[in-house]
Write a protein that binds this DNA or RNA. Structure first.
Lengths: 158, 158
DNA sequence: CACGTTCGACAACCACGTTTACTATTCCGT
DNA sequence: ACGGAATAGTAAACGTGGTTGTCGAACGTG
C-alpha cells in the first residue's frame, strides 16, 4: 500500500491524478459560469486554445486534440451554436473551411487562462512553489501528452 | 507561464494531470488486454473495486462512484454481460438486487491492482521514491476525490 | 393500514468519441 | 490537358458514459 498517509484516505496514484484534474476543471467550470460563460463546458477551453488566434481547419484541429476530424467537426458545431467559434470558406482552397474564434471565444479562453493561473496560485500557496514545480516537472517526465499536439502559441500550455 | 522547462513542452497543471491519468490507465488497459481481459475497459477496475468483496446495490454503487444510480445500473449491465459481475435478488428486501463480483471479476481486479503497482514502480525508478511520495501527498492535499467514496477495503486506494 | 420513502427499471436525451462511407476539390504526373 | 491520387469536409450508424424524469413494487412507520 505504498506510503499512505494515515491521516488522509490512502488513494493511489491513478485516482489522485484524476481527482487533481477534476478538481481543477470543476473549479474552472464553476468560475467560468459565474463570469458569464455557462455554455463553456470544462474541456472547451482546450478546444479554443487549439483553434488558436489564427484559426484552423477541422482536420488540423483533430490532429492537435488527438481526435478524429469528424469528432473535431462536431465539437466545432457545438461551439459555433453557442457563439464561441465561426466557420468561413477558405478563398484559397474551396475544400477547406476556416475555423476562427469569435470575440466571445477569445474572452472565454482568456478567462480560462486567468482562472487556471489563480488555481495554480492556490496550489503554490498551499504546497510551496518548489513542490508545485517538482510536481509539474515529474508529470512532464512521466506523462507528456502525446495526443494533444499544440504548435500554436497559447495561454495555458504549449 | 510559470516555471516552464525550456527543454520540454510547457504544458501546465491541468493538462499534465490529465496526461498522467491517461498514461496510467491506457497502460493498464493495454496490459489487461494482454493478460486476457480485453473486455475490461480502463475505468471498470474502479467499478469492480467499488462493488467490493461483499457486493453492493446499484444505488450504493452510484453513491460510491459519485454518479447516478441509473448510470451505475447501466455500467453494471455491461459488466454482467461480459461476465465480471452478477446480480441476484436480495432475500431480505425484495426491492434490492445485490451486485457481486464473479471469479472473473475478482481476477480482473487483482490484476488491475498488480499492474498499477508495477506502473507506480516505474515512476519510482524514474523519479525516486521521495518525489513520488511527495507527488501523491500533494495531490491528496489539493485534490482528495470527494466524489468516489470508498468505505470498503480495496486494492487500489481506499 | 395508509402514506411517504426507497429501490430498481425503463425511456428519452445529451456529450463525446469512433468507424465507414461519400462528395467535392486540389494536386500532380504523364 | 487530363485522369487518378490525395485531401477536406460531411453524414450516418454506433458505443460509452452520463443525465432527468417517471413509474411500480416493496418497505417501514405513525
Amino acid at each position: 500500500m505504498a506510503t499512505a498517509d494515515a491521516a488522509r484516505p490512502g488513494f493511489q496514484l491513478p485516482l489522485l491524478l484524476l481527482a487533481g484534474f477534476r478538481t481543477l476543471i470543476d473549479d474552472l467550470h464553476a468560475e467560468l459560469t459565474r463570469q458569464g460563460h455557462p455554455e463553456l463546458r470544462p474541456l472547451h477551453g482546450f478546444v479554443l486554445q487549439a483553434v488558436g488566434a489564427d484559426g484552423t481547419t477541422a482536420t488540423e484541429l483533430g490532429q492537435r486534440l488527438g481526435i478524429s476530424k469528424q469528432a473535431a467537426g462536431k465539437t466545432v458545431d457545438r461551439l459555433i451554436a453557442v457563439g464561441y467559434l465561426d466557420r468561413v470558406d477558405d478563398p484559397r482552397d474551396a475544400r477547406r473551411r476556416l475555423i476562427t474564434m469569435t470575440p466571445r471565444g477569445v474572452d472565454g479562453l482568456r478567462r480560462s487562462a486567468e482562472i487556471f493561473d489563480r488555481l495554480r496560485e492556490r496550489w503554490v500557496e498551499a504546497l510551496g512553489p518548489e513542490r508545485v514545480d517538482a510536481l509539474e516537472d515529474d508529470l512532464r517526465t512521466m506523462a507528456a501528452p502525446n495526443w494533444f499536439r499544440l504548435d500554436v502559441p497559447g495561454w495555458f500550455g504549449g
